[in-house]
Design a protein around this nucleic acid. Structure first.
Lengths: 345, 345
DNA sequence: CTGTTAGCGCCTTCAT
DNA sequence: ATGAAGGCGCTAACAG
């Protein structure tokens, strides 16, 4: 299978001029006769000539490619970030290659190798829930390839990060539940290896503390974020002798699943039990009852991550800056916490 | 900004042997001393050596990259296909670069150039609603770079295609409405330039014909798929002296939007007006009322497209096969057409 | 303004 | 089993 590729050589031969002249004409170099330039451009067009970026990348050791590594694509969160990142990258002259690791550390490490071999100019990553060792990512730093973390960040690496104020968001979410009169608030959280779990848990705890509500460990369930386990835990919560009157879920898919379970149990939402999620998933406004949630500026996250990465790429290694950009969340009140609330959405 | 990249030369010098030997050791070439091979591999590991795929691609003129061009990322349909394609591509040793054209023909053409410059080994594409001229895609055929279409295909190009049975699906959807007793069935369809619009429209027409229901042109509205226009058209339909008692929407986002409008008008779904969509979007099972729809095997579509493309890539140009793979749709009955229906989902 | 040369990192003959 | 040389497509010096 040989692709036919038109090269500079082809058009140089056709025009009986040197390759360098053709190259210059093609790259808008100043020192080239207008006439020959026109000739070259026309012939190039006619022969479907397209510069081989591979060759150029080899010379400049710049692939104009940014790698994005995400842990999963099941929720709408990561796809949305990737889409936003793709658009921003395109504006900056980069294209992206995406790898998702299915929440597997092994796969993440393997994908890392692919990224290196592909000569990415930079990397945007959100780690898997299993990732505890970061050697595979530190390689990039050593090689002078910038990394920007988002959402699920690595705290021990001093690199730029884009996150939302998880603590504050969780605090506001739980306080909202408290202000609607709820007193026994359960929390479904993720594995403690993820910083977002820890921060949101802290927000939850501090909101309770502020309002003098005792913490009941029975109501705090940490799980591995695999969605089908939500059924088990929610059922368990409902079966307690002293069941919760509200649930703060670490993310919207969890909350949505919880709603399904609660509906099956014929309980009224939000009267019997209120629910609030995190991230404002696509479906959250549409389900019945609609889900209250803390919205994240997802497009902004993808966009910022790319911008910060591009800045690093254009900077000398010695001048890398490890700023952390913290974006704010917003409380979206819907019917899962306030009956008949007119959501603006 | 200089990335430090370990090269074969570096490790050859370190070991004081020739570059070719190092290369052979690295590529599992038979003719190489076990001992030196071991030495090389160890040092390579130690020095974080990673083969530069750019250089290899340049030599082999194979980038191991597949391009995917889609018209939009707003609905969940294309992201899902891309995710499925990405996974299948990874299994076959390819990575993908994605471009989305925001339904703009201009952007599609521009993206095409990027794909060429990136030396993709093959292309998977679903065209924009504006695309009427296909010269930019025919270039690939001429260059011996295989293309596979999916969903929105180009009928005049003889290349592999992956589609669903749109005619049949539309027919079944409309027949379902008829069987629930509906008689004035409206159809919100897309621009006639898209083959899916035409095929689904034909399915609609033939279902009516089979059941001796007269076609009323007033009830057939073709629009440009921009979601905010749905409001206008649905309001228009509801305001007719003889309004429809059902709507068959060309896709789920359209149907979901229609439901919102109808709810605002205090009409009962499905009693006053039933709705059915197409594609089984993520949100369709979750909204109130849940949306009946024709589901498509989306993962299968992405997977098949990659498989067919990889086959073409591995084939000589003369042996390209232009098979069209037609996948079946499935009627998912939910509450927007049948009250209190227990959906299996 | 144009042509020549060298080389990006790697693999592949062709020698030894 | 190893080394040397050539070239993938292109750009960037260096000469005219």
């Amino acid at each position: 299978m040989k692709k036919h590729q038109t090269t500079i050589f082809d058009i140089a031969r056709e025009l009986n001029i040197s390759k360098s002249t053709v190259s210059r004409a093609l790259t808008n170099h100043p020192n080239v006769n207008e006439h020959t330039k026109k000739l070259v451009l026309e012939l190039a067009e006619k022969m479907d000539y397209q510069r081989n970026m591979l060759a150029i990348s080899l010379i400049t050791s710049k692939s104009n490619t940014i790698g994005i590594m995400v842990p999963e694509f099941r929720s709408s969160y990561f796809p949305k970030v990737v889409v936003a990142a793709q658009e921003e990258a395109a504006l900056n002259g980069y294209h992206i290659i995406v790898s998702q690791s299915n929440e597997s550390y092994e796969t993440e490490v393997a994908n890392t190798k692919v990224m290196l071999a592909s000569q990415v100019d930079g990397l945007i990553v959100s780690i898997t829930k299993e990732t505890l060792n970061f050697d595979h990512l530190k390689v990039f730093q050593r090689k002078g390839i910038p990394i920007v973390f988002f959402n699920r960040v690595c705290e021990e690496m001093i690199v730029p990060k884009v996150i939302v104020n998880d603590y504050e968001g969780a605090f506001k979410a739980v306080e909202h539940l408290i202000l609607t009169g709820k007193k026994r608030i359960a929390h479904l959280t993720g594995p403690s290896s993820l910083s977002i779990s820890k921060k949101r848990l802290n927000g939850y705890l501090d909101a309770l503390k502020k309002h003098d509500i005792p913490v009941d460990d029975e109501l705090i369930i940490s799980y591995d974020l695999s969605i089908n386990k939500v059924n088990i835990y929610v059922k368990h919560l409902l079966s307690l002798k002293n069941p919760p009157d509200a649930i703060f879920a670490i993310n919207d898919p969890t909350a949505i699943q919880a709603i399904q379970v609660i509906k099956q149990h014929q309980l009224k939402i939000p009267e019997d039990i209120a629910i609030i999620g995190f991230s404002d998933d696509y479906a959250s406004a549409l389900i019945e009852p609609s889900l209250s949630t803390m919205s994240q500026p997802i497009e902004e996250i993808g966009k910022s991550a790319i911008q910060m990465l591009v800045e690093q790429i254009n900077r000398d290694v010695e001048n890398w800056k490890a700023t952390t950009k913290i974006l704010e969340t917003e409380l979206i009140i819907r019917n899962s916490t306030v009956k008949n609330h007119i959501a603006k959405y």
